[in-house]
Design a protein around this nucleic acid. Structure first.
Length: 932
DNA sequence: GACATCACG
DNA sequence: GACGTACGTGATGTCC
């Protein structure tokens, strides 16, 4: 190491200037994994890197240091306690970044110097003095005018942003004097930023004039009497002490006690590991890559998903304050909100209604939110519950604008294509509005955004999201409505309480939207959200509102028939048992079977009760009469209670149809879930059960048309696991289970038996579900070893399956999620857990991409369907995972099947090119049983 | 409200 | 070596 001296060039970077410049130049970036503010550090690192790599020509550094301030109290405060007293507090999101800029400097292997009780400027001054004395040159990287007093022979400043060097002449331009007199000018002019008093009424121009006239400050003060202007003369005489103090404050200290020498600042190369690990820790992807390329090393892997730490509630900037919410009671007030929505181009909307069933519930009020904390509630049909009057309870409460008037004002906004309507579960609100003649569009939905980003991690209800991402627990609805028999509907809630509750919901929704919207892109699920979630809302809303016609009489007759058969069976069961008991009670049945009758079969379950599931009873039925009869009774009981009875209660009196509701975020895999009632589990597997489908009918002149994907999950498996034999079989249109059986058991196709085919079919499905020897054995009722043998052979014949499973689990373990072919992410939070959880998680991880891809495919078909069948007398009514059910005018059936099949079979285009063709089977009939 | 059971893909 | 085991749902009745 050479001694610092002639030929050396010391560059001194003013760290604080870099930090503030970086902070103000960049948006408030945060670290993805934990939300830590990181913008200033990012800018700082970029500036540092650019400086180090920059071409400085003949001014290239041989020595380099970054100098920071340390401590808020310096010797200048001892001289003058108001020094820098009016400086603004450091921004909250900058404070935690300060220590990181020190770390960053060290990571770049640049000396990082600071000294308690001294400003960076003093250290810079001292080093500059030392360097000059040793015969070297100095460049001070800063544009702070306080440092200009140091410029001189061999010492220059550099404005790194403007890349402009400042020498003696540059200082003269700025101050009107040369560097050695700068402190004199500053002492007179003072500095409002640093709270240096100076001489009142004298600025830089006047100060320079005076100094140039008298030579220096001391001479000027001594000969102040000679000044011609009376005001100036008086000020300089009266404020002499203050001026002299000011000079001490601006004079930099060249004798700062340093515990290092110039030689310690010699330029050195960074340690790639240290630097890159710091950048990775900060999650600076671009900069890491750039530096890694330059250093010719591999860039660090930086996770592209938020770590679990991101789950911690974000600090809310604007507190929730119910008293700030406005209750809108007239058109004038509403117009103001409408104006704001038009100005912004967005508005969060939430409806309050008399119930959860959108087909029945009435609109009670509407809340809007434009910016966090700025929300309103528009009560419309609140009832006056306070009155004891028999008729009074139905009267509208005072102070509400007429429903028609409010809707007339809001309709243009809600339907305006240039105003985005933001909601949490917008399908609900859109359906309510639709019943009032308002077609809400376009929409964004925070529930669906959460689903796209976090499926598998947590639920997507507003309470969950608010607590998790806003750190705020919403006002619960329970205390407002009560529970049980005394529960009231929302229209009976007092308007002031309703305002606090309802407006807050809109407020929360808007805050979530502001948080989620930019995250979609970062988590790379924008396409999923935009193509598979958002556009589904209007499609499903229309299907649900259309409903399906159900013949009440058919159901009613079946219920009666079931009741009779059940009664007969019940009598026989009691006869066989020798006593009467509740056949519907598994606990009582267990007692009868395993204690009174003493049959084989063990206790199970955590509750210590006997298991009496269908598989158990099925085994017992070979030896005894009673279990068979219980099985028959149970089947009838199920059909009656869940279907023939319950379905009747779901027939809408206005439409005569049944309107299910699809939960878009119901299943983690991307499947829909149908509720109230569930029309995705209408019986079909048994003859008696299938007859329930005869009650699902078409209007006169129409038929029901069913189109369903043939073996879609196995086809997707063949594609993703890349199984040539499976692909070929599908291409040839073979019986896929028979083909599998032939491969596995070496049986030619023309000698295939139903029994062998059945086994192969069970294995095919088992594979999709994350097969285990135990599970297959139980399903096929064969010894476990034999089942394991089948699986082993399956993997042997189709090695791609094993590879797919291993790869999928490895991916899940590394990333915490798995993906469908269309990019949908399904999180597997338990995949790295120990214990029984892990087994479930592994099988779920294997299944999710297959089930999820199939779900994506039919979603794509559904989104495209309305336009495809537009103009045809055909309506899409139901989705049952791989089936779409339509109601079609008789003369348009063939055309509809042709078009809908085309849409379904080509649904993956153009996003995904499957190696296996998708095929769709079609059926038609007067009822669902015939159509399927 | 938990649990068992059973309907669907 | 033992343990617990097919994937994804929703609705119903019993029982505490």
């Amino acid at each position: 190491m050479s001694k610092f001296g002639k030929g050396c060039h010391l560059h001194l970077i003013d760290g604080s200037a870099f930090i503030f410049r970086a902070y103000h130049a960049l948006p408030p970036l945060t670290r993805k994994s934990d939300g830590m503010p990181i913008g200033a550090v990012s800018g700082f690192c970029n500036m540092l890197q650019r400086y180090v790599d920059g071409d400085h020509g003949p001014d290239a550094p041989t020595h380099l240091a970054v100098i920071f301030d340390k401590g808020s109290h310096t010797f200048r405060n001892d001289l003058y306690d108001l020094y820098k007293a009016n400086r603004e507090a450091m921004p909250e999101d900058l404070r935690p970044q300060i220590p990181l800029t020190r770390q960053a400097t060290e990571a770049f292997n640049i000396p990082c110097k600071e000294l308690e009780g001294y400003e960076a400027d003093d250290i810079i001054a001292t080093l500059a003095c030392q360097a000059r004395k040793a015969g070297g040159r100095v460049t001070i990287v800063s544009s702070d005018k306080d440092l200009m007093q140091l410029v001189g022979d061999g010492v220059e400043m550099l404005d790194a942003m403007k890349n402009k060097r400042i020498d003696r002449e540059g200082v003269f331009e700025k101050f009107g004097v040369y560097p050695e007199r700068v402190v004199d000018v500053q002492a007179l002019a003072g500095d409002s930023v640093d709270n240096v008093p100076g001489a009142p009424g004298i600025g830089i121009k006047t100060a320079a004039l005076l100094i140039n006239e008298f030579g220096d400050l001391e001479t000027l003060l001594d000969r102040a009497e000679e000044i011609k202007q009376p005001k100036r003369r008086q000020t300089l005489i009266e404020k002499r002490d203050q001026i002299e103090l000011s000079k001490k404050l601006v004079q930099l200290d060249c004798k700062t006690p340093l515990d290092f020498t110039l030689d310690d600042l010699e330029l050195r190369d960074p340690d790639p590991d240290k630097l890159l690990s710091f950048l990775a820790e900060m999650e600076f992807r671009t900069l890491s890559k750039r530096i890694a390329d330059k250093l010719r090393v591999e860039p660090p892997v930086i996770a592209d998903t938020p770590a679990p730490a991101a789950d911690e509630p974000q600090a809310e900037e604007i507190p929730f304050d119910a008293s700030k919410y406005e209750c809108v009671r007239d058109a004038a007030a509403l117009r103001k909100w409408i104006d704001q929505a038009q100005e912004r181009g967005w508005v969060a909307v939430d409806t309050e209604t008399t119930g959860l069933n959108e087909m029945v519930a009435d609109l009670v009020g509407i809340s809007l939110c434009i910016e966090p904390g700025e929300a309103c509630y528009i009560p419309l049909t609140h009832r006056d519950g306070a009155s004891d009057d028999l008729f009074g309870s139905d009267a509208l409460a005072e102070g509400q604008m007429p429903l028609d008037e409010a809707l007339a004002l809001l309709k243009p906004v809600l339907e305006d294509p240039s105003i985005l309507k933001i909601g949490q579960n917008m399908k609900y609100d859109a359906k309510i509005f639709a019943r009032y003649g308002v077609e809400v569009a376009p929409i964004d939905d925070t529930m669906l955004m959460s689903y796209a980003m976090h499926a598998g991690e947590h639920g997507h209800g507003m309470d969950t999201l608010s607590e998790r991402y806003l750190g705020h627990t919403p006002i619960p609805i329970k205390p407002l409505l009560g529970s049980g028999k005394s529960a009231i509907t929302f229209d009976k809630v007092p308007i002031d309480e309703a305002t606090a509750y309802a407006a807050e919901d809109a407020d929360i929704t808007l805050r979530l939207w502001k948080l989620f919207k930019p995250q979609l892109h970062r988590v790379q699920v924008t396409t999923v959200y935009e193509t598979l979630e958002r556009p589904l809302v209007p499609v499903l809303a229309r299907m649900e509102m259309h409903g399906i016609k159900v013949d009440r009489d058919v159901l009613s007759r079946m219920s009666n028939a079931f009741a009779q058969k059940m009664a007969a069976l019940e009598a026989e069961i009691h006869e066989l048992a020798g006593e009467t008991f509740n056949v519907g009670s598994p606990a009582q049945l267990g007692e009868i079977l395993f204690e009174k009758m003493g049959l084989e079969g063990g206790k199970k379950g955590k509750t210590g009760k006997y298991s009496t599931g269908a598989d158990v009873l099925e085994d017992l039925a070979t030896e005894h009469e009673l279990p068979r009869k219980v099985l028959d009774w149970r089947q009838l009981s199920k059909l009656k209670s869940t279907y023939t009875d319950a379905l009747q209660t779901h027939i809408n009196p206005d439409t005569g149809r049944v309107h299910t509701s699809y939960a878009i975020t119901g299943a983690n895999t991307g499947r829909l879930a149908s509720t109230d009632p569930n029309l995705q589990n209408i019986p079909v597997r048994t003859e008696e059960g299938r007859r329930i489908r005869e009650a699902f009918i078409a209007e006169p002149g129409n038929v029901l048309v069913s189109l369903d994907y043939s073996q879609i999950e196995l086809r997707i498996l063949a594609h993703v696991a890349d199984i040539p034999a499976l692909k070929q079989a599908f291409a040839d249109g073979l019986d896929i289970h028979a083909m599998t059986a032939s491969e596995m058991f070496d049986v030619p196709l023309d000698e295939m038996t139903p029994e062998i085919r059945r086994k192969a079919k069970a294995i095919n499905f088992g594979v999709i579900y994350g097969i285990s020897g135990f599970g297959l054995a139980r399903n096929l009722r064969i010894p476990r070893a034999e089942a394991q043998g089948f699986i082993d052979r399956y993997f042997e014949r189709f090695p791609g399956i094993r590879r797919y499973m291993d790869d999928t689990i490895a991916f899940a373990k590394e990333h915490g999620y798995v993906q469908t072919l269309f990019g949908r992410k399904i999180h597997t939070t338990e995949i790295n857990a120990k214990g029984p959880h892990a087994g479930f998680a592994r099988r779920a991880a294997i299944n999710a991409p297959i089930q999820g891809t199939a779900a994506d495919v039919i979603r794509r078909a559904m989104v495209r369907m309305p336009e495809a069948i537009d103009g045809l007398p055909a309506k899409m009514l139901l989705q049952v995972h791989d089936e779409l059910l339509f109601e079609v005018a008789e003369d348009a059936v063939d055309k509809t099947i042709e078009i809908a099949r085309d849409v379904m079979e080509n649904a993956p285009d153009p996003a995904v090119k499957l190696d296996v063709k998708l095929t769709v089977d079609a059926g038609k009939g007067a009822n669902w049983a015939e159509a399927h």
